[in-house]
Amino acid sequence: MRRLTRWFEERIPVDHEVLRKAAREPLPVHMKTWISCLGGTPAMLFCILAVTGILLTFYYVPSPAQAYASVSNITFKVRMGWLIRGIHQGAAQLMIVTVLLHMIRVFFTRAYRKPRELNWMLGVALFLITLTFAFTGYSLIYDQLSYWATTIGTNMIAAVPLIGQPLLYLLRGGPDVNPNTLSRFYDFHIGVLPTMMTLLIVAHLALVRLHGVAPLPEDPRRETYPFFPDHMLRETIVGLLLLIALINFVMFFPPTVGAPATPGNTPGHIRPEWYFFPTYRWLKLTSLPVGIWGGILFVVGLFLWPFIDAVLERIAPRRNLWVIVGSAFFLMTIVFMLWEAIVG
């Protein structure tokens, strides 16, 4: 055994002490709360999604003629297919929940301020990629919801000023939702987005390590504790509990498939998944240009929030405008979501 270890040590010349130090990075003691595990949870869910996603590709066929049948096959015929698809679907939903909660935590602890602005922006990019993952994911099922979500979503892109039309053609692979669209969404879902997400997660974590975890405002404690094994253990417990919860959920509520896509016939009651409810409601309330410009401004505002906060701070130093603006947008999103969920 010692010879084997030495063999590897000679071939991988890394100082053990450096590795040990890196693993035992000191974390501020306020991280010892469960809510502070929210940053690592989406990364663990991403791993679960990658494994179950790869398994799903063994049976999924990305063509309009066969996509729906292949998803039905996975769900109802393939052994354990329902479990794999159910975990994939559930983990995707949980990933959005945990990313949102992590963002809310970072926002209300103001952890995005100098010098961590760039990491906030990387985080927003990761959030948008997560949503794009979800959107392209349910477009692949090719049931009615998939088809009409793809139609509406891509038409929204067409309404973007100047670059909208060429971008629409590029995404759809033609003027309408056609077989090219499904292949492109599939490519995005299993190739482009995972690559982008992996690179951004690495950059996001690297910046967290380089800056250290942001101190909690008005927390006088200066004690630290090591990332490994203390925090790692806590993160692992969260990850395992989530996996157990997911499996149990799928056992009781196995995945289903909606009616097959019928181009040219929108069903009477259609609405997207819950995380798009606020956007859906917003689009019902506004004219198309206002809806699209509002969306673009919201995303740009979210990206540039650390700088907007700095400007607000300079304008009115003791008014805590960041809480007012942040809470207003947060409340508006919740109201739009509930409004759509209840009224429909």
């Binding site: 009409w148 139609t151 509406i152 038409n155 929204m156 040219g264 016939n265 929108t266 009477g268 259609i270 689009l283 198309l288």
Partner: peptide, 12 residues
């Protein structure tokens, strides 16, 4: 055309 001029669904 039964295609809604908003975002392309079919009107009823």
């Amino acid at each position: 055309s039964a295609i809604c001029t908003h975002l392309g669904c079919t009107v009823q």
